[in-house]
Design a protein around this nucleic acid. Structure first.
Length: 927
DNA sequence: GTGTTCACG
DNA sequence: GACGTACGTGAACACC
């Protein structure tokens, strides 16, 4: 290669302006200009993003040229090629339209050239500049993450995703498309693009397209040789839709011949003129950004009142570290004045029942936050941080903080408040009133992604937060928060509170707009204190009986392991599925059944079960060993470790926003999957016991999901059966197979039961056949017979799927919304999966709502009845209580009544709910 | 960190 | 005629 200067003379940055606008619009609440109500949210977001980009340029990037490129109008030469191109794009929102010209004005206020050309998309202009500079030997960075631009990537052209702070080069393109940049258009031509209405070839997605292009080299070769393809459907689709593929390729291929009205000289790296920029910011009334510009550029122009502490660094926002009571008191006064404060605790553990408070942060307005370190350092810690000496004593700080956290006139906003409230409760502080951004997000967006803070900040604010691992490290040498230097801790902790408050301002108004206030206020927020008390209470577990079980399991496992080695004729790791499969399907030559997702022969229980039934002794030994191994490692060995030394009990943690349907999830340890189905497993439940003088009470809903199905789908026969207290599975069998319930063959009832469950899961003939071990044809016949007998079910399923397709979501009877985005996916497997989710979610979710309502009412109901019982655990359709022996009978009656009446008055179910209760010394006895 | 397996409703 | 499925979870372990 010729002698090349290590620094090219041209480094051009091309910003995809249109994508910036839309991101800004969707990331921000609908802000308006105070003086006249002009919508300016997107402009504001755009300015912040552009400013951040230009600020970041100074460290790390060194562009010589820069421009922002916009789409001129929706119509381009592509519409002449294919009239439907982008025809499915909705009109831009009404309040965004007037912002388009403002954004261009903003760009010019930054002194940044703003380029658009009639008849071309921004992407084409970007392509033209990229090629120009590439040919001139320069480098190009395209600031966008739009996949349509990936075809331009080369040695000299990269994409930069500012949101993810990620560079997209050749390797990343291959990761995304499975082919190098120059083949991207071929893949896109096949896969199409639903958002741009590029047709592609039906039935082919990116994965398949990449595979085909890899195999055949390029689109034309593939189309010419399509006849060779083995898969029938794929082959026919390719042959039939070859023209669509060709036109798709033309649509997705960017043209690099757009006329360039600006020369490279015209787009040399701009210099911000503070006065010009500030004049525009004044006009728009963007005070925050103006302050930042003033801070960064010094006294370039006249400053307003210098009330807020001027941000020191040109970085985002300066956060204050609070070391003394006076400073803390000032923040608390400010919170009182505003009536709202975001609050976040920092501790040394994820387990709120063990965590020690290390500090807390407050945010009183977006960008205005502080961190109060209390417990950094500690004995035996070599932390070279002079700030440690300056920390306030914990007790003194809490004394000042407590009145604020308990002040009924100040709203405390948190992210996952249950955690912080539990830590504070252990210090005698009751946080109230509060709002929780995690739960608001859950009420609005279940099924659309996670509800953790980092993810929400990204999704709604377009901001990257400092990750815990960035301040504390990761892996083996991860520090606890008290070991983090205070300055660093401030950046992280104060940002958390700041983000929480910003998220609150974005999310809270949506509750009303999207009619989810009732869900949030009746199913989410009030559950927080209730679950908090359950976690605080914990459950007593007898470690000795668990360790006796462990020893017993160990002994029996050793015997099974020896037997397995003997049968295999060699030593192998019985815990390794891979080695098992080598022995069984390799060495012994047994017939392998199904393969796993990873392509290996599966060795899971039902496969081994079949082999055992066929008379092979080794699979049986492995199954026996596995059963005991699971129980030992997951339960009898692990549970004693989970006993809190202070309380002597196990305190699980319930995630309130982990599932898509509204169910809770239990972690650390999971107490919602304690064994019950086998005898050995049940022995583990015997170790869950009541305190002396008490009993455990279990109360569970009988068939709640089927009852809700009967109600929702309006199945008359099923409702009648529940009304009459019949055995629902026997009734189903009797209806389906026309035989009397009395003296029914248990096999027949079992089949009906499997079908009933199948319906709830969004039945498929394959699934039912698998479950029952019958042929798919037979299963199909059962399902059809079921639909004939209970026509309401069909209607429910069809109607649910129709609504999910049209609206992208389904709802429970209490209004909880569950998004099922994949319902319109082009991949059939994805779509089928989403359809089953759509069918299941309203049923599972309504049941989850019912038990939430019961839980929320329970503490007050117990108190009113002067009962001392404490609610300890929830297992989806079951609640576990600990109660004084003498109050057991009355507690059982009350609990059952509260649970059975839980839907009312919000919903009058057309089926009765029935709750069964039991009591005993252990969970096993109570159930 | 991912995949497999298996405990629960 | 082939494909890929029962719904919702969390934890332990092997293996890369």
């Amino acid at each position: 290669m010729a002698d090349k200067p290590n620094k090219p003379s041209i480094r051009l940055y091309l910003v995809d302006g249109s994508s910036y606008i839309f991101r800004a619009y969707h990331a921000l609440p609908p802000l308006t200009r105070k003086s006249d109500g002009l919508p300016v949210g997107a402009v504001s977001g755009y300015c912040n993003m552009l400013y951040k980009l230009l600020a970041d340029m100074n460290d790390g990037h060194d562009p010589t040229h820069l421009a922002v490129i916009f789409d001129f109008s929706a119509k381009t030469f592509r519409n002449d090629l294919y009239p439907e191109y982008k025809a499915n794009r909705p009109e831009p929102p009404e309040d965004l339209v007037p912002q388009f010209p403002l954004v261009r004005e903003a760009t010019r206020a930054f002194n940044v050239p703003c380029i658009e050309t009639e008849g071309y998309e921004a992407d084409d202009i970007i392509a033209a500049y990229a090629r120009l500079v590439e040919r001139a030997g320069g480098e190009v960075v395209i600031v966008s993450s739009d996949k349509d631009l990936m075809q331009l990537v080369s040695d000299r052209v990269t994409l930069f995703d500012t949101m993810k702070n990620r560079r997209i080069g050749r390797v990343e393109v291959i990761e995304k498309f499975g082919v190098p940049p120059e083949k991207v258009v071929d893949v896109q031509a096949l896969a199409g693009d639903s958002s741009d209405n590029v047709p592609g070839v039906p039935g082919i997605g990116v994965k398949t397209a990449a595979q085909l292009i890899q195999e055949y080299g390029d689109l034309e070769t593939l189309l010419a040789r399509a006849g060779e393809i083995k898969q029938n459907k794929r082959r026919e689709s390719l042959i039939e839709h070859a023209d669509k593929a060709r036109i798709s390729k033309q649509l997705v291929t960017l043209r690099d011949d757009a006329p360039l009205e600006f020369s490279l000289d015209d787009i040399r790296m701009p210099k911000i003129e503070p006065d010009k920029l500030i004049a525009f910011l004044d006009e728009m009334e963007f005070a925050a950004l103006k302050r930042r510009v003033l801070a960064d550029f010094g006294a370039g122009a006249k400053d307003g009142a210098g009330d807020a502490p001027a941000p020191a660094a040109p970085a985002e926002t300066a956060y204050e570290t609070v070391f003394d009571e006076q400073a803390l008191a000032r923040w608390i006064d400010e919170a009182r004045e505003r009536g709202i404060v975001a609050f976040d605790t920092e501790t040394d553990s994820l387990d709120a029942m063990r965590a020690r408070l290390v500090g807390f942060s407050l945010a009183t307005a977006p960008g205005r936050a502080c961190y109060v370190p209390l417990g950094h350092g500690g004995e035996g810690l070599a932390l070279d941080d002079a700030d440690i000496e300056k920390q306030m004593p914990l007790e003194a700080a809490l004394e000042v903080l407590k009145p604020l956290l308990e002040d009924p006139s100040v709203l405390k906003v948190g992210q996952n408040v249950k955690y912080d409230a539990l830590v504070m409760a252990r210090h005698g502080i009751a946080v109230a009133p509060f709002d929780d951004t995690m739960l608001i997000s859950y009420a609005l967006d279940s099924g659309r992604g996670g509800h953790g803070m980092d993810e929400l900040a990204k999704r709604h604010l377009g901001l990257d937060t400092i990750k815990f691992a960035q301040v504390a490290g990761s892996g083996k040498k991860q520090k606890t928060f008290n070991e983090v230097a205070i300055a660093k801790a401030t950046e992280y902790a104060a940002e958390d509170a700041d983000m929480t408050l910003r998220l609150f301002h974005v999310l809270k108004p949506r509750l009303a707009d999207e009619k989810k206030c009732v869900v949030y206020e009746t199913l989410e927020r009030p559950l927080v204190p209730v679950v908090m008390e359950m976690e605080r209470a914990g459950v007593k577990v007898d470690p000795d009986s668990l360790s006796r079980l462990s020893a017993d399991f160990a002994q029996r496992m050793a015997a099974y392991e020896a037997e397995a080695m003997e049968l295999a004729g060699e030593e192998f790791n019985i815990g390794s599925p891979k080695q098992i499969s080598e022995i069984l399907f390799g060495k012994l030559g047994l017939p392998g059944g199904r393969k796993t997702a990873g392509g290996a022969w599966s060795t899971k229980a039902d496969v081994l079960e079949e082999l055992a039934a066929a008379g092979h002794p080794l699979p049986r030994a492995i199954l026996n060993w596995r059963g005991l191994s699971k129980l030992k490692s997951t339960y009898t060995d692990a549970l004693p470790q989970a006993i809190n030394p202070e309380t002597g009990r196990i305190h699980t943690s319930y995630s309130l926003a982990a599932t898509t349907t509204g169910r809770l999830a239990s972690t650390d340890p999971n107490l919602q999957n304690i064994p019950i189905r086998t005898d050995d497993g049940r022995k583990i439940r015997e170790a869950f016991i009541a305190e002396k003088g008490n009993v455990l009470i279990s109360a569970d809903y009988s068939q709640i999901e089927l009852r809700l199905l009967a109600h929702i789908a309006d199945i008359k026969a099923m409702k009648q059966a529940f009304e009459d207290g019949l055995d629902i599975h026997a009734m189903t069998a009797s209806e389906m197979f026309g035989m009397p319930i009395k003296g029914m063959d248990p096999m027949v009832r079992r089949r009906a039961k499997a079908i009933n469950f199948g319906i709830i899961y969004g039945i498929s003939a394959y699934g039912l056949a698998n479950q029952l071990g019958i042929a798919r044809g037979e299963a199909k016949e059962y399902i059809e017979r079921y639909f004939r007998k209970f026509p309401g079910i069909r209607r429910y399923m069809d109607e649910t799927i129709r609504r999910a397709r049209a609206e992208g979501h389904v709802e429970t009877v209490f209004g909880r919304r569950i998004h099922v985005g994949a319902i319109n996916d082009k991949n059939q497997a994805m779509r089928n999966y989403a359809e089953r989710q759509a069918i299941n979610a309203p049923i599972q979710g309504s049941a989850a709502d019912v038990i939430r309502r019961a839980m929320i009412r329970m503490p007050a109901a117990l108190a009113r009845a002067k009962l001392q019982a404490r609610m300890l655990l929830q297992v989806h359709d079951e609640l576990i209580f600990e109660a004084p022996k003498g109050e057991a009978a009355e507690t059982r009656r009350l609990v059952a009544a509260v649970m059975e009446k839980a839907p009312s008055p919000a919903v009058a179910l057309s089926v009765p709910l029935v709750v069964d209760t039991g009591e005993g010394r252990s969970w096993s006895e109570a159930h």
